[in-house]
Amino acid sequence: MATSNSLTALADFAGALLPLSARDLQTQIDERLAQVPNEINPYGFDAYGMCPDWMRQVLLPAALLYRYYFRVETFGIERLPRGRVLVISNHAGQLPFDGAMLGMALLLEATPPRIARSMGEYWIARLPWVSVAAARSGALIGTPQNCSHMLENEECVVAFPEGVRGMNKLFSQRYQLQRFGNGFMRLALGHDTPIVPVAIVGSEEQQPGIANLASLGRALGMPPIPITLTFPWLGPLGLLPLPVKYRIYFGEPMYFEGEESDEDAIIEGKVDEVKDQITRMLERGRNERKSVFR
């Protein structure tokens, strides 16, 4: 108890030193988290290890990135339906800042505020600290069963069907959507769930990739390790993304009809509709911006 008291005191002290804008952001995070309707046990966790208290303590840096570094602007977030929904987005940028910023948008700007239940790659569970941080902030390993649980609990599931193929895109491949997995469409059909296509503009330039070291990644039990303009040349500092401007476009919810067990060809047709919608929004976003940084 003594340590937690002194921690709280320390946090209060740090809070007093924060500039006003950051304190406002923190208040906003607190208020928004308080409105989230998730079922939390007496220890502060939901059944999947998500912990609003933990988020309260660590989300400020992400919110600062959101407001002042990436200067995220959202379009059409009011289209997000209440209840179960599958948010399907493009994925790029070597490190999943796009996932974090989309999550922040859903928390800070959606009505009601939503916790992004992101469907993560399997290898995330093997990483110390990262696996815990992911679980506490609401992410899960992206198995079909986990996604089903979330949809049945009326959650907002975020998936990047490009997966690592998207995250590892080279600079020359920016805004070219890689192959989409089909799993999300089967789940949407099986659970009568609307799909909201999302296009994130900005993330695809944040960390220009030059090459990928697949064999090194394999040896580490991870996806291919990227070589970028700054990494590994500048060491850990090179992991810092460029201060690109993020624009996040939310499309009209798409309702599909069909069977979860339909043949791949039929499912792929529906997946392509979602993909086309995201491509159109990406084009719109690139036309609307003045430059990568503005």
Partner: peptide
């Protein structure tokens, strides 16, 4: 296992 879903 890392790939275990919740509530098997």
């Amino acid at each position: 296992f890392p790939e275990n879903p919740y509530f098997m």
